[in-house]
Simulated assay, not measured.
Amino acid sequence: MENEEKLARLTEREKVCLRHWLQHKSAKEIAADLHISHHAVEKRLKMARTKLGTTSSMAAARLLSKAEGYDQTVAQASDLTAPSRQSYSAHIWPLILGAIAMTFIAAALLLLLQSAGDEAAHPDTVLQVRQGDEQLDLVLANLISSAEIGSNGEVFLANPLSDQRYLQPQSGYYWQISAAGHQDLPSRSLWDRTLEVKGSEASLGKPLYYDSNQFPSQRLRVAQRSISLPGSDVEWKFIVARPREMPD
Rank of each mutant, 00 (worst) to 15 (best):
I144Y: 03
S37K: 02
L167P: 01
P123M: 08
L112H: 06
E12Y: 01
E42V: 13
Y88Q: 14
R165K: 04
A121I: 12
D33G: 04
S37A: 06
P123R: 03
I239E: 07
H39P: 00
Y70A: 13
C17S: 11
S228P: 00
A241H: 06
R44K: 05
D33S: 12
K6H: 01
S146P: 10
L95G: 05
L97W: 15
Q128M: 07
L113A: 12
W21S: 10
L208S: 00
D233E: 15
G53S: 04
F215E: 08
A61C: 09
S56K: 04
T55L: 04
S162H: 15
M246N: 06
D184I: 06
K198S: 10
Y166N: 00
Y173Q: 02
D133P: 05
E2A: 15
K51T: 02
S84C: 07
L109T: 05
D33F: 06
R13P: 13
G181P: 12
A67C: 10
I92L: 12
K51W: 01
A75S: 05
L185I: 08
L143C: 09
W93T: 14
V129Q: 11
L45E: 05
S87N: 05
Q128D: 15
E14F: 00
V74N: 14
V129P: 03
A75K: 06
K66I: 12
S178Y: 07
S115C: 01
A202Q: 01
S87D: 02
A61L: 03
E68C: 07
F215G: 03
P169C: 08
P247W: 00
Q183A: 09
Y209M: 05
W236M: 08
A107H: 07
S146T: 13
H20M: 08
E235W: 10
H91G: 02
D124R: 15
I227Q: 12
Q164T: 13
Q86D: 13
S56R: 08
L208E: 06
R225E: 08
A106S: 10
D233H: 07
T54Y: 01
Y174P: 01
G150E: 12
P243S: 05
A40F: 02
A241W: 03
Q168T: 15
R9T: 03
G117Q: 13
S26W: 12
R62C: 10
L22P: 00
H20Q: 06
E14G: 09
W93K: 02
L143T: 01
S151E: 13
G98W: 10
W236K: 08
E154K: 11
Q114C: 02
I36E: 07
A141F: 07
R62Q: 15
R219I: 09
